[in-house]
Deep mutational scan, measured.
Amino acid sequence: CAFTHRPCSHPRLEGQEFCIKHILEDKNAPFKQCSYISTKNGKRCPNAAPKPEKKDGVSFCAEH
Rank of each mutant, 00 (worst) to 15 (best):
C19S: 00
A62N: 10
H10F: 11
C45T: 02
N41L: 11
H64I: 00
C61H: 02
C1N: 01
S38H: 10
A62E: 10
K21S: 09
C19W: 00
I23T: 06
N47E: 13
H5Y: 07
I37R: 13
N28C: 08
K27N: 13
R6L: 08
P46H: 07
A48V: 06
H22M: 00
K43Q: 13
E17L: 09
C34N: 03
K43I: 06
R44F: 08
P30V: 04
K27T: 07
S9T: 06
G57R: 02
S59T: 14
R44Y: 11
I20N: 03
R12L: 04
G15N: 08
D56L: 08
C1Q: 02
E63I: 05
V58L: 13
P50C: 10
K43D: 14
E63N: 12
P52F: 15
P46S: 13
D56R: 12
V58I: 13
R12V: 12
S35M: 13
K21W: 06
C8D: 01
L24C: 09
Q16E: 04
E63Y: 08
T39R: 10
K40V: 01
Y36C: 06
K40F: 14
D26V: 07
A48M: 07
A48Q: 04
F18W: 03
S35C: 15
N47S: 14
Q33I: 09
F3W: 07
Q16F: 08
A29W: 02
P52R: 08
E25K: 04
V58K: 14
H64E: 00
R6G: 12
G57S: 03
R6T: 11
R12Q: 01
Y36F: 15
H10T: 10
S59V: 11
D56I: 05
E14D: 07
P30A: 05
S38I: 03
E63K: 11
R44A: 13
K43E: 13
T39V: 10
H10C: 15
C34Y: 01
A48H: 03
K27L: 07
R44D: 10
P11W: 01
P7C: 05
P11H: 04
P7F: 09
S38C: 14
Y36G: 11
P50M: 05
P46R: 14
C45E: 06
T39A: 09
P30Y: 03
N41A: 13
H5I: 11
P50H: 08
G42I: 05
K51W: 06
E17A: 05
C1L: 00
Q33R: 11
E17C: 09
L13S: 03
L13G: 02
F31A: 05
S38T: 10
K43S: 14
P46G: 14
K51N: 06
A62T: 12
C19T: 00
V58Q: 15
F18G: 01
S38Y: 12
L13F: 03
K27Q: 07
K32C: 07
P30G: 12
K21N: 09
D26P: 04
H5F: 11
P7I: 10
P52K: 08
L24R: 07
S35V: 14
E17R: 05
I23Y: 04
E25Q: 07
F31K: 06
S38D: 15
K51P: 10
I37H: 15
N41C: 07
S9G: 08
K51Q: 05
C1I: 04
C19N: 00
K21E: 11
G57A: 01
S35Y: 09
C45K: 01
G42H: 08
K27F: 03
H10M: 13
H22K: 01
L13C: 03
S9V: 12
A2G: 10
C19E: 00
C19A: 00
V58D: 15
Q33K: 13
N28K: 10
P30E: 04
E25I: 06
S38Q: 11
P46I: 12
S9R: 06
D26N: 11
P11S: 07
A2C: 11
S9D: 09
C8I: 00
F31E: 08
C19Y: 00
P7Q: 12
L13D: 02
R6C: 14
R44T: 14
E17V: 10
E25T: 09
E25R: 10
T4Q: 02
K32M: 12
F3M: 06
K40C: 15
A29R: 07
H5E: 15
S59R: 09
R6N: 08
P30T: 06
S59E: 04
Q16I: 02
R6V: 11
K43P: 12
H22G: 00
H10D: 04
P7Y: 07
I20R: 09
I23D: 03
D56E: 09
I37Y: 08
P52G: 12
G42E: 15
C1P: 00
E14M: 14
S59P: 08
A49W: 03
F31T: 05
A48K: 06
C34R: 01
C1F: 01
Y36K: 15
F3S: 08
P52W: 13
L13E: 03
Q16D: 02
P30H: 04
C61L: 02
T4M: 00
N47I: 10
F18T: 02
S38W: 12
E17N: 14
F3I: 15
R44I: 14
K32W: 04
C45I: 01
L13Q: 06
D26K: 06
G15Y: 01
A49Y: 04
A62W: 11
A48E: 04
G57D: 08
A49S: 13
K32S: 11
A2S: 04
P52N: 15
N47Q: 15
L24G: 10
H64A: 01
L24S: 09
R6E: 10
H5S: 08
L13H: 05
P11Y: 02
Y36N: 07
L13Y: 04
C61N: 02
A2N: 15
C1W: 00
S35W: 07
H10G: 15
E17H: 09
I23H: 04
C61D: 02
I23V: 09
D26Q: 06
P30N: 06
F3C: 08
P46A: 09
K40E: 00
F18Y: 10
E14L: 09
E25F: 12
C8L: 00
N47P: 02
A62V: 13
G42A: 13
I20W: 05
Y36W: 09
E25Y: 13
L13W: 03
Q33E: 13
C8P: 00
H22D: 00
Q16M: 07
D56K: 15
A2F: 01
C45P: 01
